[in-house]
C-alpha cells in the first residue's frame, strides 16, 4: 500500500514537472495522452466497470463539442459557462440512449451496435442541419485569453488535461469503493444474477451511461477549445469511438489506470511509427500503421489478456494483489 502511494506521488510529480523540461511539441503530446486517457475513462466507466460495451461513445463527445461551440458562437456564451451546459447535454443524451436501449432489453453486442447507429444518426443530422453549419463545421474565434478557455502557452492546456485525467481517475477509484460501483461490477459479471440479488439493473445502467455521457461531453468541449474547430466527422465519426474503446481495452477495461496506460501505449506506438516513417520512406503513411499495430493489440488482448496491460503488470507483480471489490 505504502509502495503504491509512493509510486503515485512520484508519477504525479513527474507529470507536473514534465512540461517545464521538454519542448512545446512534447508538451502537446503529453496533453494528448491525458486527454485521451480522460475520454477513455469515460468509456471505461460504462464499458469496463459496468460491462456495457459501446461502439458509438463519440456521440457524447460530439454532443459536448457542438453544444459548447453553438452556445459560444451562436448565442455568445462565455466558454467556461458553456462547459457545464455541454456536460448536461452529454448526460441527457446518455440518459436518453440508456433508457431507450435498456428498456428494450438490449445487451452485449446489440447495445454496442445501437450506440454505433445513434452516433451515425447524430453525424448525418449535424451534417445536414443549419444550426451546426452542416458539413462546413464550426470555428470558434481565436482569442487566447484564460477567461475564454483559450491559452497562448500550451502548458496551461496541458495542466488542464492532467487535471481532467486525475478527476476521471478519482471518479473511477470512487467507483471501486462505492456500493454503486459494486453493483455495476455485479451487473457486468452476471446481469440475471445481479437482478436476482435485488439490484435494480435498469436504473444502475441508466445512471452509469448518464455519468459516462457527461464526462465524455466534457472531453468534447475541451477538444474544441484546444483546436477551435469541429465538424460532423470529427464530432461523430467512428475514429474517436474506436480510440476510446482501444485505450481502455488495451490498458485494461474495468481498471482505474487502464485508460491512462492504454493512452500512453497508443501515443508511444504513434511516436515509434512516426520515427519509423522517417527512417523507412515506404512507410510514409503513419496513421494507418499505428492503427494496424493497435488493432493487432486489441485482438491479442481479447484473446489472451482480458485485463489488458494492467493485468500484465498485476501478474508480474510479486505479491498477488487483491482484485477490485
Amino acid at each position: 500500500m505504502r509502495g503504491r502511494a509512493l509510486l503515485l506521488a512520484a508519477g504525479l510529480a513527474a507529470a507536473l514537472a514534465y512540461p517545464l523540461l521538454v519542448p512545446n511539441y512534447l508538451i502537446t503530446v503529453g496533453m494528448l495522452i491525458f486527454f485521451t486517457a480522460f475520454i477513455g475513462q469515460s468509456w471505461n466507466i460504462a464499458g469496463g466497470f459496468a460491462g456495457q460495451t459501446s461502439f458509438g461513445h463519440v456521440v457524447f463527445f460530439g454532443t459536448g463539442a457542438y453544444t459548447s461551440t453553438i452556445l459560444q458562437v451562436t448565442y455568445g456564451w462565455n466558454a467556461w459557462l458553456s462547459w457545464p451546459a455541454a456536460m448536461a447535454a452529454g448526460a441527457a443524451v446518455g440518459w436518453m440512449i440508456a433508457v431507450l436501449s435498456f428498456r428494450a432489453g438490449l445487451r452485449g453486442s446489440y447495445f454496442a451496435l445501437i450506440t454505433l447507429a445513434f452516433a451515425e444518426v447524430f453525424r448525418i443530422v449535424s451534417n445536414s442541419v443549419p444550426f451546426t453549419r452542416g458539413g462546413l463545421g464550426m470555428l470558434i474565434k481565436a482569442d487566447p485569453r484564460p477567461e475564454n478557455f483559450q491559452f497562448r502557452d500550451p502548458i496551461w492546456i496541458y495542466y488542464l488535461a492532467l487535471l481532467l485525467c486525475i478527476v476521471s481517475i478519482l471518479i473511477a477509484w470512487q467507483l471501486t469503493r462505492s456500493r454503486f460501483g459494486a453493483r455495476l461490477v455485479a451487473i457486468r459479471e452476471n446481469e440475471d444474477a445481479a437482478r436476482a440479488l435485488g439490484i435494480d439493473v435498469f436504473t444502475e445502467k441508466v445512471k452509469v451511461l448518464t455519468l459516462s455521457g457527461a464526462m465524455c461531453a466534457a472531453g468534447g468541449t475541451f477538444y474544441v477549445q484546444k483546436y477551435l474547430y469541429i465538424d460532423p466527422s470529427i464530432a461523430f465519426g467512428v475514429e474517436k469511438s474506436v480510440e476510446m474503446l482501444l485505450v481502455s481495452m488495451v490498458g485494461g477495461a474495468g481498471t482505474i489506470f487502464g485508460p491512462l496506460i492504454g493512452s500512453v501505449a497508443l501515443t508511444g506506438i504513434n511516436e515509434i511509427t512516426r520515427w519509423l516513417a522517417g527512417v523507412v520512406p515506404a512507410l510514409k503513411n503513419v496513421q494507418p500503421l499505428s492503427l494496424i499495430v493497435y488493432g493487432i493489440m486489441l485482438m491479442l488482448i481479447v484473446a489472451r489478456l482480458p485485463d489488458g496491460l494492467m493485468g500484465l503488470f498485476r501478474r508480474s507483480a510479486a505479491k498477488p494483489e487483491q482484485r477490485r471489490a
Binding site: G108, S109, A112, L298, M299
Partner: peptide, 27 residues
C-alpha cells in the same frame, strides 16, 4: 480459436480484424 466466452469479445475481435484490414488497405 478465441471465440470462447462473451459475445462482446467476438465483436471486439472482429472489430480488431476490421481495424487492421481497413488501415492495411489505406497503407
Amino acid at each position: 480459436r478465441f471465440s470462447h466466452g462473451r459475445d462482446e469479445n467476438i465483436l471486439l475481435l472482429t472489430l480488431g480484424v476490421s481495424i487492421v484490414v481497413d488501415n492495411a488497405a489505406l497503407l
